[in-house]
Design a binder for these strands. Structure first.
Lengths: 175, 175, 175, 175
DNA sequence: TTTT
DNA sequence: TTTT
């Protein structure tokens, strides 16, 4: 259907270190969950209440996935902009099951809101025992990338900046 | 967690007429699903592809639910702004299952994008055999509401307009 | 500053036909204004009030600008997603002046919400005397583009579809 | 016009401490500017470029304005969700001038993204000589508010939490 | 200047 | 299950 919009915006904290997988084509994909929560005061009892929601995030975007691998950790606060997608699968009994995820693929955005100290700028960070395959993580991250903070869903190459078109000035020549 | 954001924005079409339920407290709740889709051209074969996603929407907001009941129908195009929530339940075998929904409750927004002709301004619309309990729907909708189009998540009373505070001018007196 | 977000989302109607200009480099740029409005009931007098805001939109994106040229007209309803930008200029007296615009450039989105009948799918639409240079408009639009409705801020070539990467499956092979 | 959307979302840093004014009706209004920026690499020269945009924010919302007064300072990072509004005024020469601002009024949201240490939790913060009227600020802020972090555009009273309706359960009784 |  |  032409003319539709599917957008999810979250600000929350990672529940665990991102898990990085590779597709058969070799592309990096990152998985993690993000907690958001809301609090309110009960109208009747006056007591404070809080409810936390967990969101499964899947980063189907080579550049963004590498950023996740390198900079995000359990507890990191992020702004995430992606789309909602529900995927069907079969459980052991062969019954249909559905899982809804927030997909970062195209037009996606990820902004790191934690200070750099929360993230991992090098490979000597303390390992908090997440059980992740560290060998895999350490494989490809040695090249420096000083582009910290905000990432558009740029190209799939190593350059995460947005490569704005220089032919497009910020001033408008005819005015 | 203070300081989190949980927002979903959709523009899409309803897959069927909204279903209206009442809570035990008598509040209206509307349920419907919204389709969004994206299309692209396959890089290798050049053929056009399209993928549709379905989103379950639950309107936990008395005023907005009534608007849905009165104006939305199968095929209606809407802009929806709500939050993501996953709810746990048990299937017949007692196994945990999860369902993710887009909740319109507080700070929610619903804008009707179909022309009025697509919606139901009166009760004489053609029934497309949705199997819904028509008796319930026809119960409370006779009062006129000329507030068509956009609705903030206003009060739970019959007045859907936002009742802006008149003490707040649009000009700033000190400038 | 890494890690910032600048996003404007509007649903409104065009106040006039878009104006298309060309940069010296030959790129198309579209300008138009969009009206949004809100209505409320005065708390004291009970009378209905309405306030309309006008937003200047500048489409610095070859593909999107062509879509505007071809499909948008005075009165067209659109969803627009861009960024806020204030530009400095000098008035005749040499005094600094500032104009704030909604820029559609990268990561921008434009969804046509009016039916096709409101827009111009051919060149036989009635000309409402907008004074626009019709010669220019008619010049390059003859090639068919059946991609109606929603446009991401795709490439600057003639292909407005998003060219998703085929290496990226919608299923996740390891699960 | 029914059915319109006017939303601005920013993540950025305050350029100076917020200025708090009072309307003649006694309501607090906060003003500050927020910087967002984007960076990219020049296609031709390969050099890094950065552009910063400044946004004027006006908080026409008693509760939110007090939060700004109490917690935000020059440099604070915030997520802001408001609407775009252009206001007309006359310069000294009587010529019409326009200023565009991001208004936080209804449906507005402000999330503090800096750690608490950047903000002012008490009145003993260092004064960075902003020239603001300190007497006015110190006037009304002594009451404790432990509601740090995220604020919906709640009521105009002292309770900034959202007072969710207890009649609305998070589970759906009929399922 | 739009729209309902 | 929608829509183009």
């Amino acid at each position: 259907m032409a003319g539709s919009l599917n957008k999810v915006c979250l600000i929350g904290n990672l529940g665990q270190d991102p898990e990085i997988r590779r597709t058969q084509g070799g592309n990096a994909v990152a998985n993690f969950s993000v907690a958001t929560s809301e609090s309110w005061r009960d109208r009747n009892t006056g007591e404070k209440k809080e409810k936390t929601d967990w969101h499964n995030v899947v980063v189907w975007n080579e550049g963004l996935a590498k950023v996740c691998e390198q900079y995000l950790r359990k507890g990191s606060k992020v702004y995430i902009e992606g789309k909602l997608q529900t995927r069907k699968w079969q459980d052991q009994g062969g019954a249909d099951r559905y899982t809804t995820e927030v997909i970062l693929q195209f037009d996606a955005k990820l902004i790191m809101l934690s200070g750099r100290e929360d993230s991992a700028g090098d490979s000597r960070r303390d390992d908090r025992g997440s059980g992740r395959d560290e060998g895999q993580r350490r494989g490809g991250n040695t090249r420096g990338n000083d582009n910290s903070g905000g990432y558009g869903g740029g190209g799939s190459g190593g350059n995460f900046s947005r490569d704005l078109d220089d032919d497009i000035p910020f001033e408008m020549p005819w005015r």
